[in-house]
């Protein structure tokens, strides 16, 4: 790890000023950045520690929206009563991520900005367009069992590893960004980029911007939601496929549906096509499968990950089924 200057920012104004130094990076819980620095994937000159910023609360706004401070720890957010009761899929997504220790460290803002876990990204001996633009992609034609099935390009097939963001995408969360230039808000859906021919550009955040908050809309359907994560061991592993879903059924007909997939693209994948297929359809296994099919029609496999298309289809169907018939038989 390169030696660096360390600045601990007491307030947002100091933080966003400090980040304008060339080679400066924000440091949150460190669970991703410190690991990448140790592997020399990241080599900042200055590290601006933002963990002492007073952005660690969940507030209910007068209009019913929820504002989550970006320095809130993942574990604290998952344990928060408002999140558990009003947005269970978000609590479940957070709890499905990493381990108890890492959730105690990782911040909400940092979770949004997680880097891919593609093994070639962290191996400096490998070619990776994301790490070193123009060098090539060793995942294509290499080990890509856990690569993207949506939105991949010839330059990159990496996925975004966050669980939390999958729920946030389904919930239509908003990201608040602040810099010396001011404050702006962006929808989380679309915040993460598809690789195209520039996979090094991962999100819409500018180099000098700080995530200060995440806002959730007041969304009654979210109270009936769940997050399902499918992975290679029972816990403490990244998703092969995950599903965040909320479902409202009246008189046997779907009246509202929210669906997003994780582990399938360089962004949390909001399943708009599936949502459209569900709206107004009878709440049956058949409809759930059709909705999954509608979304997965656009999926494209790499050499080793065709199974993820079928897995996603089944995970979506199963998650909707379980939401509709909780505790019901398979």
């Amino acid at each position: 790890m390169k030696d660096f200057a360390y600045v601990s920012a007491p307030d947002v104004a100091t933080a966003v000023r400090a980040i304008t130094e060339p080679g400066a990076k924000f440091l949150g819980g460190g669970t991703n950045l410190v690991d990448l620095m140790r592997q020399n994937v990241e080599r900042p000159d200055t590290v601006v520690d933002i963990t002492r910023l007073p952005l660690d609360r969940v507030e209910e706004l007068p209009d019913g929206r929820i504002r989550i401070g970006a320095m809130m720890r993942n574990s604290a957010l998952a344990a928060h009563r408002l999140i558990r009761t009003r947005y269970p899929m978000l609590a479940q997504a957070l709890l499905a991520g990493a381990s108890g220790q890492l959730r105690n460290m990782a911040t909400v803002g940092g979770n949004v900005l997680q880097r891919t876990r593609c093994p070639y990204f962290v191996d400096l001996a490998a070619r990776c367009n994301k790490r070193e633009p123009g060098s090539g992609c060793d995942a294509i034609g290499g080990f890509n069992r856990n690569a993207a099935i949506f939105g991949a390009s010839e330059s990159c097939v990496a996925t975004h590893p966050s669980d939390m963001c999958v729920a946030l995408a389904a919930l239509d969360a908003t990201i608040e960004l602040e810099s010396v230039r001011g404050v702006r808000r962006l929808p989380l859906v679309g915040f993460h980029a598809l690789p195209g021919d520039a996979p090094q550009h991962e999100t819409a955040i500018a180099a000098d911007e700080l995530i200060t908050a995440i806002e959730l809309p007041d969304l009654p359907v979210a109270a009936r939601s769940r997050y399902r994560k499918v992975r290679d061991r029972a816990s403490y592993a990244f998703a092969l496929v995950s599903v965040a879903a909320a479902l409202e059924v009246r008189d046997g007909v779907v009246t509202e549906a929210r669906l997003a997939l994780g582990g399938v693209a360089s962004r949390p994948w909001r399943a708009h096509a599936a949502e459209r297929a569900l709206m107004g359809a009878p709440a049956t296994e058949e409809s759930f499968r059709r909705a999954a099919d509608a979304e997965l029609a656009g999926a494209v496999a790499q050499s080793q990950n065709a199974f993820k298309i079928e897995l996603a289809r089944r995970a979506v169907t199963a998650t909707l089924r379980q939401l509709h018939l909780p505790g019901g038989a398979a």
Binding site: R117, A126, G142, A234, S235, A237, F238
Partner: peptide
């Protein structure tokens, strides 16, 4: 292609966990 171990870490090499 080159004999290099790709998942040389405990996050990508999956030892069974408690669960």
């Amino acid at each position: 292609r080159n004999g290099r171990i790709v998942n040389a870490s405990l996050s990508e090499y999956h030892v069974p966990v408690h669960a």
